[in-house]
Design a protein around this nucleic acid. Structure first.
Lengths: 189, 189
DNA sequence: ATAGTCGGAATGAATATTCATTCCGCTATA
DNA sequence: TATAGCGGAATGAATATTCATTCCGACTAT
């Protein structure tokens, strides 16, 4: 028996939302996986939408903190900052692949509330500002930051989707190679 | 009044599946958008799953044909082939953004049948073989082709997701820049 | 007229949500 | 220490709603 039912519910919901999506997941499914009664879920969350928003915010904050912790801001070396972000993204994906896939597949969903949207927008803003800096320094190629983020983030997430299907194995060499590829994608040549 | 109700149904379903997902789209929604009765849908498709599979196969075939038509196989110049693929992908996205997003978000869905899965796998195989060639020629970096495809395809699709939200505008310069970025991501340096 | 097509109300299964009841741990009392 | 009483947590059956699918009367083209 675990102490915290709310966590059990969030864990179960995360797995299911990440693999089946919000609409493909029923509340009884979540209850069964969390080993609680269906009604118990409504003691902790107002409804299914509240649950998905709470979970989304939790995951985005964890992702955001993972990246911002010990961020090498001081010298402003973009290459180093990029490496840091990638390393932390890899760590996050390794620790919580469902969190990564859930955030990706649900950012922009119609049932997200304003707070959820803002939290995710803030996360992207952090990345955007870094890229703007890099462009000023002449290190990063002159495309809209939104496009550069799409390229790197899109590549990263899809890689992990494929890894999760088992088609591709996550090895240090692979991750190192992918990091280089993504850097090469956005740097000035 | 259009002549072909089946097409009306497929068009409506495409828009809805692309924006709300399979589970978030109800059959009556499709009927309303297609301006047909709900029952009419069942004259053309056995059930909702048949419909999504038919649509998926149609979109994948169109995407595949778009790319394979006039494909520069003869000389085997990888750079040129890459440019061709990107150009055609841009065209496809421009003509049928929902088709692109639908295929992306539904490849790998649990309700796809074997035929749908195979069709999509064949499409990826085509790309894989090209990359293998490029690697042999020393033009493409030595990572698993699945990873390289993830990087380029992931970047491409996410870019269009962002474009569709209106955050980013699709201009010739942007597309040219993104094509270069993606090529830089996978080429040997 | 009639064969084929269509629309959309009707149906029943699935789903989110509620709520009466049970359960559990704590405290006050003897 | 033993026990009865209390309050909040948990439950899952019951309810209300939504949805995929069916069915049949109406319509259309021949």
């Amino acid at each position: 028996m675990t102490k915290n039912k709310q966590e059990d519910i969030l864990d179960a919901a995360l797995l299911l939302f990440a693999t089946r999506g919000f609409d493909g997941t029923t509340v009884p499914m979540i209850a069964e996986r969390a080993k609680v009664g269906a009604g118990t879920i409504y003691r902790y969350f107002e409804n299914k939408e509240s649950l998905v928003n709470a979970l989304f915010q939790k995951c985005v904050m964890e992702l955001s903190e993972t990246i911002k912790k010990d961020f090498p801001i001081s010298n402003g070396d973009i290459r180093e900052q990029f490496r840091h972000i990638f390393k932390r993204m890899f760590n996050f994906a390794k620790k919580d692949i469902n969190g990564l896939l859930f955030v990706d597949s649900h950012s922009g969903a119609r049932y997200l509330n304003d707070q959820s949207k803002k939290l995710f927008a803030d996360f992207l803003d952090f990345l955007r500002i870094l890229l703007e800096n890099g462009k000023k320094q002449g290190m990063i190629c002159q495309l809209p930051s939104e496009a550069l983020i799409s390229i790197v983030y899109g590549a990263f997430v899809r890689l992990y989707k494929v890894i999760q299907t088992g088609v591709l194995e996550e090895t240090p060499e692979l991750l190192k190679g992918v990091e280089e590829c993504c850097w090469n994608a956005i740097r000035v040549h």
